[in-house]
Structures are given as C-alpha cells and as structure tokens.
C-alpha cells in the first residue's frame, strides 16, 4: 500500500509536469499578448505528428524531437503573422472564434496529410523500461525524464523572463504595450518570437507526451481544456502560477481517480461505488477550478483580471 501510494504521488507529479509543459506556452502567450489561443492544442498535435513521422522515416527519435520543435515553432510563427496578429486588438470573443476555426483547419489538415490512422511513436531504447528504486519501487524511466524536462523548462522560463534582454522586453510588454513600442522595440517582432516560443513549447510537449500516448487527430483537445484549467487556477500570465496550478491539477486528478472509488466502496456496494467514484473523479478538477475562482477570482498567482 505504501509503495502504491508513493507511485501514485509520483504519477500525480508527472501528470502535473506534463500539463505544465502544455500550459507554459499558453500562459506565456496570454501574459504577453493577452491572447486566448485555443489552437495551442493543435500545435501540440502537430509536434506529436511531426515527431512520429520523422522518427518513423529516419528511425531516430531524437531527430523527430528536433523536427517537432522546428516545425511547431515555424507553424507558430506563420499563424502569428497570418492570423493571430490581427486579433490582438480584438476582444476575447473574436480570439476564441478565430482560434476555434484554426482547430478545425489543423485537425482536418493533419488528417489529410498524415491519414486517419494513429501514428506510431515509441520511447527511444535508452529511455525505455522502468528503474527500480531502493525499497522496491519501480517507475518508468521516461516518466522520470518528463518530470525532469518539466523542471528544466520551468527553470529555463524563469531565467528567460527574469534574466535576459528578451525577458525584460516581455515584462515591459506585459506592463505597458504603448511604452515599449515608444522605446523603439519592434513590438510585432517580439510578439512573433513569443508566439513561436509558446508554439515550440506546445510542440515539444506533444512530441514527449505523444511518445506515451496515441498520436492521433484530436489528441490536443482534451489536454487543451486541461491546460486552460491549469493556467486559470494558477493565474493567467504567471509561469509560477502555471507550475503550481499544473501540479495541483495533476495531483488532484490522479489521487481522485485512485482514492474516490475506494472511498465510496466503504459506504456503498462496491460495483456502484466504482461507477460513482470515477464519475465524481472526472469532474473533480473542474470543481477545483470553480472553487479556486470563486474564492480568488484572479487565480492563485494572478495579478490582474
């Protein structure tokens, strides 16, 4: 039981990191440009498809990973210039709709190019299998790598925002758009760079998570909604909020699915308890989000509404 509990806690942590990879780009784009990007999930899907296709063609997972990074960043830059740029001045409604339209274009476009069947993508040999900890706990190496990558991305983003020239501009852009343009910074180039960066983060997340999951059309949508839940809980625009929010959601979801059916079995017939428990578990994170927002409308680390 203790081993199981530790493993579930690791799972919650790992799931949270997976969500963070997705949420980081989303919250960055929102924080800097004030843009709601529903197509973030499509960039995630694109990353997974490109990684699978390139890895399948060349036989190298690593080449696939690099390709997915380049492809998603490039796709991000292209849609920023072609579409997103026209949306900054619009209200959230137009942003939601335009990016909803982009989802349709990307999903069916992907199916057109790559076919309807799921693609194959697997863990590279060096990272496959499970490691055994002292005490007998076994845990898949690749999931540990995802936890590590998540931490590295979080560290990288903190450094980028806090310690580089680009970060200074990003923060300035968040604070006052007019001022930064007046200071002679090319704001539209900055926006393209930030959007491409967000897209690259989505692409990498897609490639890594796609390695563990089914690479198929529509894979970005459930995770997109979860990523929104994460950044809303954490406070939109805050990297720290996204990190804490992701861990909270990951932990709540994993533990809910694990503990609720067991809990209900104490008070009712086990077969019914499993149904009720997992029904409740599936709405738990939305409940968490509602509670957080009702108590703290700007999210845990949100500065403005």
């Amino acid at each position: 039981m203790t081993l199981l509990l530790i493993e579930q806690i690791l799972n919650g942590l790992q799931y949270g990191m997976m969500l963070f990879l997705m949420a980081a780009g989303l919250t960055l784009v929102f924080g800097v440009m004030g843009l709601i990007n529903l197509a973030h999930g499509s960039l995630y899907m694109l990353g997974a498809f490109v990684c699978a296709a390139v890895a399948g063609f060349t036989g190298s997972f690593w080449l696939g990973l690099v390709a997915s990074l380049i492809a998603s960043a490039a796709a991000g830059a292209v849609i920023e210039v072609a579409v997103i740029r026209r949306l900054y001045a619009r209200d959230h409604l137009d942003q939601v709709l335009a990016t909803f339209a982009l989802i349709l274009v990307f999903s069916e476009g992907c199916r057109w190019v790559f076919g309807s069947s799921p693609l194959f993508l697997t863990v590279p040999a060096v990272l496959s299998g499970a490691v055994t900890f002292p005490g007998g706990l076994q845990y898949p190496l690749f999931r540990l790598v995802i936890i590590f990558v998540g931490l590295a991305v979080a560290g990288g983003l903190f450094w980028l925002i806090g310690g580089t020239r680009l970060g200074v501009r990003i923060r300035a852009g968040e604070a006052d758009r007019g001022m930064i343009a007046a200071l002679g910074v090319d704001i539209s180039r900055l926006y393209t760079i930030v959007f491409a960066l967000g897209a690259a983060l989505a692409g990498i997340a897609g490639a890594l998570v796609g390695t563990l999951q089914s690479v198929q059309v529509g894979m970005g949508e459930p995770v997109l909604i979860l990523a929104f839940v994460v950044i809303v809980i954490g406070g939109i625009g805050s990297i720290k909020g996204a990190l804490i929010g992701a861990l909270l959601v990951g932990m709540t979801d994993t533990m809910g699915r694990f503990l609720l059916p067991m809990g209900f079995a104490q008070i009712m017939d086990p077969a019914a308890a499993r149904g009720v428990g997992s029904a409740l578990a599936s709405i738990l994170i939305y409940l968490l989000m509602a509670v957080v927002l009702v108590v703290r409308p700007q999210g845990l680390f949100g500065a403005r509404t």
């Binding site: 959230h92 839940v229 809303v232 709405i283 927002l293 509404t305």
Partner: peptide, 17 residues
Amino acid sequence: RTSGVFFIMLTLAFSQM
C-alpha cells in the same frame, strides 16, 4: 464573480462538469 477570460473559462468548467 470573475470577468474576462476567467469568466469564459469558469462557464466552460461548469459545462464540462
């Protein structure tokens, strides 16, 4: 109780529940 993007997401959350 919220506004802007938080309102959008909260209404989404309730419908998802």
